[in-house]
């Protein structure tokens, strides 16, 4: 793999981490979904590497917990979904906003899957009690993609050309 490509993916992964930490004080308001979708639109499957860097940074900062197991599949799943949809959706950012919103809505349910070994009842309770936050997550993801999706995408396209 070319060095430039490796460095680019590492830096974009670090940007994900910084974006997450910067907005950590706002519950379920995050730029990670938006950025990962845009990374996938521009860099394709390389976005998996960005997600891996991000997940590793989270582990280094917060240490191991069940939540981290969820991170191992939740973010790559978003990249996979974006990869599958990017041919059909192109640059339709209103539709991408819906995709990002639906991901926000499903986030708690996906997250809760890692808690199934703790106990199915606990996993369901965890998901249900977090549903109001999932709704908020969906609305925020939708709005952020609608407002920032196009400019971030354009910026990344320019970066890809360097």
């Amino acid at each position: 793999m070319p060095v430039v490509r490796i460095a680019r993916m590492a830096l974009l992964g670090a940007v994900l981490y910084v974006a997450q930490v910067a907005l950590a004080f706002l519950p379920n308001v995050e730029l990670v979904s938006l950025l990962l979708i845009c990374y996938t639109m521009v860099f394709g499957k390389d976005a998996f590497l960005c997600a891996a860097v991000f997940v590793l940074c989270e582990l280094l900062q917060w240490g191991f917990g069940v939540w981290w197991l969820s991170y191992l599949y939740v973010w790559p799943l978003l990249v996979l979904a974006a990869l599958l949809l990017r041919g059909a959706l192109g640059e339709e950012f209103l539709v991408w906003a819906v995709v990002s919103g639906v991901f926000g809505l499903c986030f708690g349910a996906l997250f809760a899957v890692a808690y199934l070994p703790v106990g199915p009842a606990y996993a369901v309770t965890y998901w249900v009690s977090g549903l109001p936050f999932d709704v908020w997550h969906a609305v925020c993801n939708f709005t952020l993609m609608l407002v920032l999706g196009k400019p971030v995408y354009r910026l990344l396209v320019r970066l890809a050309g360097i």
């Binding site: 959706l89 209103l94 999932d134 709704v135 969906a138």
Partner: peptide, 28 residues
Amino acid sequence: WTKRRKIAIVLVFAVLVAVALIGAWALN
């Protein structure tokens, strides 16, 4: 992606969010 199709998708999303909101309120 016609305008009508995009509006339909956004409407479906809005309904999903509303249902989740009502569900969250009822279940919690």
